[in-house]
Design a protein around this nucleic acid. Structure first.
Lengths: 333, 333
DNA sequence: GTGAAAGCGCTAACAC
DNA sequence: GTGTTAGCGCTTTCAC
């Protein structure tokens, strides 16, 4: 409404003077006390607020970081967004959320936000990164502050990943030490990192992999998967995400399968709300706060110094044991 | 990187011409075909993207709406943010998330985003609205596109509310018709609307209110509340939010209290993930999608026409019955 | 057919 | 002590 220039006119000085006073620049000392007073008072009265659009233009920065992801409606992404917002704020940035509904076209479109200077940097959780990695690489001189999450093997783009293999080993180690003889897995076949970690662990301990397939964002398939699990009753089961775990366990419950009495279950994610599940979920915890902080730090580092090499950051996972895993009687070492 | 002016220089025409061509304005027809071609080609080659900061300044709009809330880390707020982002996008707007950690100072600060033209409008979910309503009213000529959620009785500010009283009546009606004789409630004493709805319903059916108190964002208090519930074992219990319900039920589970066998439970919210809880939660559903759409519509309406009166929109609730309520044998009408 | 100029709100460099 | 100027990138009006 009221601009700095208007204010200057009312006070009867130049815009420059007003700017210097309001921002308390060194030069402000050379402005006479009464002029300063007048400016301050009138700014208050007119309810003056600096215009962010003009500031952004002048400073060539929006102080905003975008988080691009599929949807926010599952706890993992919600907590990640939450942590990103907190981390961004610590550095004086705001968070913009851009959802793609896992549509690759929308993903590419959303990435334009940085080229068109809507945001200063982007944290990307891609649904289909491998397929479009080259496009993104082409689009991005790799000078832009872009960080991809959960995409290994992208040396030339900054990334933050969880050390899922080590997490899976921890889980297997725990289960086997407690007397479990086998571990099954439920995951979406299309996404490899967690599956691969599972298979590696199976190999290490000479366990025959047992795999239950479902598709994310497809209730029907998850329910069917749960019914299959109810039939086969693996003694221990690791489920690829908290959200899928919740869905599967709730279906198992309707089928009369009790957790952990009938099946011991661990999930991957370990969101804060999964501690509140019934029963509280054991999990290979992916600490979203650490991921968020690392991602924001990296964005800011690359914004400040675009010439440095991209970093590939790995966040350790932590094993969290709660009630969803049975304590076996015959504790065989 | 590459500006329209640069582009113009390279092509050898004026910025105005380039602008007209790239935006395909009516005047573009009067630009010679080869000039047009040259501009288009070079724009492509130089990877030209319109600079959003300059556009925002020129058009006096950021095409961004802010969602101010405490945190995103509970499902209700996450789903609301998700729905708001979708609704905003339908109208060509982006969503910025500003979290306040329920701090009233931060809330007021966040509201400045609209005066400083960081965003075009604000959807506010306040933790302490009544106390600061006057400040907000003062701050806002009530001309800004501001919508508050879940704050009844604010005639002079646009608001969107759920019809919780009607929802509570539906729930009582259902429970009593199924043979339940009483309904208890667990809520945070400091927040009144849901409690009031509960008490009104109790009055209507001449039921003695039985109230279990807890404090949001205080695990200790929620666990203590759950233990109290485990002791007193009300036959039916309504819990003020999905998040609290999850927490309480998970503690009850550890105490050996089975749902719905020992206690029948309904929550308020009915988020999509509460359907995936174990057991799936019966709920008075607050449809966040409808709330989000109404809020965004109202923001846009007021932005387009600031002189019109603020609206107070009421969204109906829906009763959802799932497994967390026992089916009684003696079905007394 | 195309260009020049002004303006959106602010700041920084330099002038007096 | 304070003002002037130029410029951030774009659009629009009017002139030629």
């Amino acid at each position: 409404m009221s601009s700095l220039t208007e204010l200057a006119e009312k006070v009867g000085v130049s815009p420059a003077t007003v700017s210097i006073v309001l921002n308390n620049r060194p030069l402000a000392k050379r402005v006479s006390a009464k002029t300063r007073e007048k400016i301050l008072v009138l700014a208050q009265e007119m309810n003056y607020r600096p215009n962010h659009m003009a500031l952004a233009m002048q400073r060539q920065t929006t102080q905003t970081i975008a988080f691009i992801c599929g949807r926010l409606n599952s706890p993992f992404y919600a907590e990640l967004a939450d942590d990103l917002a907190i981390a961004a704020e610590k550095h004086g940035y705001r968070l913009m959320v851009q959802m793609t509904c896992w549509d690759t076209g929308k993903e590419l479109e959303a990435l334009e936000m940085i080229a068109s200077r809507i945001v200063d940097g982007i944290v990307l959780f891609s649904g289909a990164f491998p397929e479009q990695a080259d496009k993104i690489r082409g689009l991005y001189s790799s000078k832009w502050p872009l960080v991809v999450l959960e995409q290994r093997d992208e040396q030339d783009i900054s990334s933050v990943n969880f050390d899922i293999e080590s997490g899976m080993r921890d889980l297997f180690g725990y289960l086997l030490s407690r007397g479990f003889k086998s571990v099954a897995m439920a995951d979406d076949r299309r996404f490899l990192p967690k599956q691969n970690a599972y298979r590696k662990a199976c190999e290490k301990w000479s366990i025959t992999p047992e795999f239950f397939d479902f598709q994310y964002w497809n209730s029907e398939s998850i329910e069917q998967c749960a019914r299959q699990i109810a039939l086969e009753r693996p003694e221990a089961l690791v489920i690829a995400s908290d959200y899928a775990a919740a869905h599967i366990i709730s279906v198992l419950g309707k089928c009369g399968v009790r957790i952990p009495h009938d099946i011991s279950i661990a999930s991957i994610d370990g969101t804060r709300w999964s501690e509140l599940y019934n029963p509280p979920l054991s999990a290979v915890c992916q600490n979203t706060q650490k991921m968020a902080e690392a991602a924001i730090d990296e964005i800011i580092r690359r914004k400040a110094n675009p010439e440095t090499l991209p970093r590939n950051i790995v966040i350790p996972t932590e094993l969290r044991i709660l009630n969803s895993i049975a304590s076996k009687q015959n504790n065989i070492q």
